[in-house]
C-alpha cells in the first residue's frame, strides 16, 4: 500500500525527519506515536504531497508520489467542516475534489452512523463528536484507499474520544481501508493500531516498530487487561528513553 524509504526533511538548517522507513499494508491500521513536536505532522504532510521531501521516496502501490497531492484521503486534527455546507454537502466535499460523487451512498452512510436526522443541518448545529464523525466519514468515503488521520480525536474529551475509538474500529470493519494515523497518546495507539511506529524527538527517526499483540476484535474490556497495561508501560519507557 504505502512505502516510505529513507525519508529526509530539512527546513533551512534544521533537520526534522532523519531517514524514515515505514510501510502500511492493505487493510492495516498503523499508528505513528511520538512526542509533540517530533515531526509527525511534517511526515504526514510529506505523504499528503504538500511538502516535498529533501530526499527519500514515498510510494503508493509502487507509484512514486513525492510532492504529489491527491493520493490519500485525509482527516485533520480539527474537523475542518465548511460552515456554509450542510452535513451531507460536507461529506461530499472530498468526493467533489476528486471528481466522483455518490450522493446516495453518502446519505446512506450518514444514516448508518445515526446522524440521518442531521443530513441537512449545518456544522454549528451539531456537537463536537458528531463533527469529528462527519469529518471521518468524509475521508472514509473519498475514493483513495489510504486514509491519513492527524491526531484525529485529540480535541475531544476523554469519554467522547473513547466512544470514537470503538466507533472507528466498527467503521473500519465495515469498509476496509488502510489507515495511517499519528498520535501522542499511547492508549489511542495501542487500542486502535495493528502496528505502531515509535518516533524519537527531533530530528525524528523510528525508534521501534511494535506489533500490537491484541486480537483484531477490540472492546473496552481490553483497556483493563494486564497485557494492555504491560504494553502501555513498555511503550511509555520507550518514549521516555
Amino acid at each position: 500500500m504505502l512505502t516510505i524509504q529513507a525519508l529526509h526533511k530539512q527546513f533551512q538548517q534544521q533537520e526534522v525527519l532523519q531517514g524514515i522507513d515505514l510501510h502500511v499494508q492493505d487493510g492495516e491500521i498503523v499508528a505513528l506515536l511520538g512526542p509533540s513536536g517530533s515531526g509527525k505532522s511534517t511526515l504526514l504532510q510529506c505523504v499528503g504531497g504538500i511538502l516535498p521531501p529533501t530526499s527519500g521516496q514515498i510510494f503508493i502501490d509502487d507509484t512514486l508520489i513525492n510532492g504529489e497531492s491527491g493520493h490519500i484521503s485525509y482527516m485533520p486534527q480539527h474537523h475542518c467542516l465548511l460552515p456554509w455546507r450542510t452535513v451531507l454537502q460536507n461529506v461530499l466535499l472530498a468526493q467533489e475534489l476528486s471528481g466522483t460523487i455518490n450522493k446516495e451512498e453518502a446519505a446512506e452512510w450518514i444514516e448508518r452512523i445515526g446522524l440521518g436526522d442531521y443530513l441537512h443541518a449545518y456544522p454549528h448545529e451539531i456537537s463536537g463528536g458528531m463533527k469529528q464523525r462527519i469529518s471521518f466519514l468524509r475521508a472514509l468515503l473519498s475514493p483513495q484507499s489510504l486514509l491519513c488521520l492527524d491526531e484525529p480525536f485529540s480535541a475531544l474529551d476523554e469519554i467522547t474520544r473513547h466512544k470514537m475509538h470503538i466507533w472507528l474500529l466498527d467503521m473500519w470493519k465495515k469498509r476496509q481501508k488502510s489507515i495511517l494515523f499519528i498520535t501522542h497518546q499511547i492508549d489511542e495507539a495501542l487500542f486502535l493500531a495493528n502496528r505502531i511506529y515509535v518516533l524519537s524527538d527531533r530530528p525524528a527517526i523510528i525508534k521501534a516498530e511494535i506489533q500490537v499483540p491484541f486480537p483484531k476484535e477490540r472492546t473496552k474490556e481490553l483497556l483493563e487487561t494486564e497485557e494492555f497495561f504491560q504494553a502501555r508501560t513498555q511503550l511509555l519507557n520507550l518514549l521516555m528513553e
Partner: peptide, 17 residues
C-alpha cells in the same frame, strides 16, 4: 444566512458524540 461563524475551530466538549 447559513454562514454563522463558529468559534475558532475547537471541538466543543460535548459528551454526546
Amino acid at each position: 444566512h447559513s454562514y454563522k461563524k463558529e468559534e475558532p475551530q475547537h471541538a466543543n466538549n460535548s459528551s454526546t458524540p
